[in-house]
Simulated scan of single mutants.
Amino acid sequence: MNGPHDTDDIDRIQHGLAALREEVAKRIVGQSAVVEQLMTCLLCDGNALIESNPGLGKTTLVRTIAEATDLSFSRIQNTPDLMPADITGTEIIRESGNTREFVFEEGPVFANLVLADEINRATPKTQAALLEAMQEKQVTTAGETRELPRPFFVLATQNPIDQEGTYPLPEAQTDRFLLKILVEYPSRDEERAIVDRYTTGAPDPAVDRVLSRQDLMRAQQLTRQVPIADDIRDRVIDLVRATRTADNVEFGASPRASMGLVLAAKARAFLEGRSHVSWEDVEAMAHPVLRHRLIVDFRAEREGITPDEVVADLL
């Protein structure tokens, strides 16, 4: 990251990332931690599971990021009757004159930024249709593998309180998400600002395109080049390994969590404009990287102990 071309790239891209925060703030009041974690996810080329109650602006946030980064956007409303082909696409017969031919019609997964709303309302078969897309950046339909556009992200949401008629995500699915992001209610002042902004009849604030698709992909390359000291890397590994033997934990995190936490710490350092990873970056990203990868035991569930509390104790 020390060459002159890299320096120019870093300056331009970090300026674009700062501008992206400003564009998001035009429509989203507060939620700075959520915005930072979503931007971290983009820099890591990862997927995120967003958990919150309804009405907290998740769709607006994701759509705004797509507009400000020149990314194509699609939204999938998951329901129990949604079929895998409704996501990946299907072959249809198209007539042209006297001829008929099968043509593949792309589903909503063929976008740079895919918002899978209420993913736990889809059946396991439909949830599985996203697995290949999330992990391999491709889909296989009618015996043919088709590449998805790059960059490609799945941002899925689920409602933590309304679990009736839902299909909880299996561990194999949740592990595909780099981060699990919790969206909290706004403060009183923030809620007043939201009400004032969106009840006057004025159109939504315009969002400028401040970070190109190419610059975002270059930022992903630069993120991986951010150095991390050996002792911090080893502490990350020890932290993840400790989840497997911790009290109140039935199943701990896998090596995928170790890789994810190192990469997320690098992305946060890059967002902060620093040229190296600090332990503060690890602490900031430990909860969103690990909380969905820990399964607490029955005793912990009975006592109300959450994965976040386990992570905090280990830290």
Score class of each variant (00 low, 15 high):
149 P>Q: 01
60 T>R: 10
71 L>R: 09
167 Y>I: 11
85 A>F: 12
98 N>Q: 09
120 N>S: 13
155 L>T: 06
62 V>H: 04
106 E>V: 07
128 A>E: 09
59 T>F: 02
57 G>H: 01
105 E>Q: 13
47 N>F: 08
106 E>C: 01
92 I>H: 03
74 S>L: 05
58 K>D: 02
36 E>W: 02
62 V>L: 13
58 K>N: 01
124 P>W: 06
146 R>A: 12
99 T>P: 10
30 G>W: 03
109 V>S: 13
41 C>Y: 00
152 F>K: 04
89 G>F: 00
171 E>R: 07
70 D>W: 00
51 E>T: 15
122 A>Q: 07
117 D>P: 11
32 S>K: 15
130 L>V: 01
149 P>T: 02
47 N>L: 07
30 G>M: 03
136 E>H: 08
140 T>A: 01
152 F>Q: 11
164 E>D: 11
71 L>D: 06
72 S>F: 08
145 T>H: 01
171 E>M: 01
59 T>P: 04
69 T>N: 02
33 A>T: 14
100 R>L: 13
105 E>N: 10
86 D>N: 08
171 E>H: 12
148 L>E: 11
156 A>E: 06
119 I>Q: 12
46 G>A: 03
170 P>S: 03
82 L>G: 11
43 L>I: 14
113 L>Y: 05
149 P>H: 04
122 A>T: 03
46 G>V: 12
49 L>D: 10
142 A>C: 05
39 M>R: 00
133 A>Q: 02
42 L>C: 03
136 E>N: 07
59 T>M: 05
119 I>T: 06
65 I>V: 14
127 Q>R: 08
153 F>A: 14
51 E>I: 11
173 Q>T: 14
112 N>Y: 02
29 V>T: 13
31 Q>M: 09
37 Q>K: 15
117 D>N: 13
107 G>C: 07
172 A>V: 14
146 R>L: 15
32 S>H: 15
85 A>G: 15
63 R>P: 02
123 T>E: 07
64 T>W: 04
62 V>W: 02
40 T>R: 05
60 T>D: 00
48 A>D: 04
112 N>G: 13
62 V>N: 01
150 R>D: 11
125 K>N: 09
155 L>D: 04
80 P>A: 12
101 E>V: 08
104 F>R: 13
138 Q>M: 01
116 A>R: 00
115 L>R: 07
111 A>G: 10
173 Q>S: 06
117 D>K: 02
54 P>W: 03
62 V>D: 08
169 L>W: 08
165 G>C: 10
131 L>A: 09
71 L>W: 07
142 A>F: 07
95 E>C: 14
120 N>I: 06
121 R>V: 08
171 E>A: 13
78 N>T: 15
53 N>P: 05
62 V>Y: 03
161 I>N: 14
96 S>P: 00
38 L>N: 10
45 D>P: 03
137 K>S: 14
101 E>L: 09
111 A>V: 10
91 E>N: 15
53 N>I: 12
94 R>K: 15
92 I>R: 05
136 E>M: 09
117 D>H: 12
158 Q>A: 03
107 G>H: 08
48 A>H: 02
134 M>A: 10
38 L>P: 04
155 L>Y: 15
91 E>Q: 14
110 F>C: 07
131 L>D: 00
52 S>A: 15
35 V>Y: 09
74 S>N: 15
53 N>M: 14
